[in-house]
Nucleic acid binder design. Structure first.
Lengths: 182, 182
DNA sequence: AGCATGCCTGACCGATCGGTCAGATGCCGA
DNA sequence: TCGGCATCTGACCGATCGGTCAGGCATGCT
């Protein structure tokens, strides 16, 4: 069965993403990916030079999305508008990013501090500042990141609560924590 | 070089713990562990039946600690005392547990819902209730867990802030979030 | 028709993995 | 001194891994 190259490329990427998220990078063989796609292992290596290349392209996507959100925030004029944009986009993005790259933290600790992931160390700084409303309290800025970034992974691990219910409750709590002291 | 069995046993366990935390379970070979300990791979398999057995014994330890803390909280009389004990013990324990078992989440998702890890789903319930001071707001109880559990992993990943500085700031924030609405 | 190109397959390779096994070594009680 | 047990080693096994290679097959251009 022969398909057009771009579609096969994306099929492999999607299958690899599901497998990596489920069983980790080292726990996923090229044979597994090929079976999901419905082709041979050699076909996978025809579209990607390496197994590493699949991973690299897979993680580049959320990084680009996060960078795009960062630029969108940088483009708006008022801090209030920046906060709104950040609050809307960052939660979903942080949740998605952590869910899709959870296996990286276990198998490759320290990898997120290296390029191209190290971009994240600078981008979230502006994101969180926008989200926390230019708060001077570092605890508030840190907390916004910690809470948001921890939602996806912690939910369903310790807590038996669907993400749909957990997120608004936590968001309300984040907003409250970030309110200025009266 | 021959050592007494209990010491060798613990040496292997300690070496495996470091390796698993660094490179993951599948990323660590028995040869790696043996090299760290200073013995042969067969010697490792003399003290442990399986590679799985090493992992099982490694993760059983923090589970026991968490259960012990739970029993300590159940033993105290007043809710205020329970809250103090929980606040003291749970933060360190949650941080340690998440750091030492971070690789599990990436390589074996869903494992923490199965025995013997599923005990954690019941134990933290009382812990968090004690920590949150019997709050009726579910968001507060959830938040206490989420925040505490997210400290170890998120710190040093996105945030360039040592844990020693991060923890008191977050603890202050947790307490504030849990205060009753005035 | 003939040929080139893109896409894919099955067979194969070396390396590494977890695990087994027979036997060597050292220690300790009889 | 001798036998037995605990501890450990080197050699080895089958399985699986990532990756290579020669060739097959369809399509489309000349």
């Amino acid at each position: 069965m022969t398909r057009a190259a771009p579609e096969r490329h994306d099929d492999i990427l999607a299958a690899a993403g599901r497998r990596f998220a489920q069983s980790g990078y080292r726990g996923t063989s090229l044979q597994d990916i090929a079976a999901d796609v419905g082709c041979s292992k050699a076909a996978v290596l025809y579209h990607f030079t390496d197994k590493k290349a699949i991973l690299a392209e897979l993680v580049a996507r959320p990084i680009d999305q996060l960078r795009a959100l960062d630029e969108r925030i940088a483009a708006v004029s008022s801090p209030a508008e920046a906060q709104r944009v950040a609050a809307e986009g960052f939660v979903d993005l942080a949740v998605q990013f952590r869910r899709e790259t959870a296996f990286l933290r276990g198998e490759f600790p320290g990898l997120l501090q290296q390029p191209p992931f190290s971009h994240l160390q600078h981008i979230p700084d502006r994101l969180v500042r926008a989200f926390a409303g230019h708060s001077d309290r570092p605890a508030a800025r840190v907390a916004a990141l910690v809470i948001l970034a921890g939602i996806a992974e912690t939910c369903g691990e310790f807590i038996d609560l669907p993400e749909a219910e957990l997120r608004p409750a936590l968001l309300a709590l984040v907003r409250r924590a970030l309110e200025p002291v009266t």
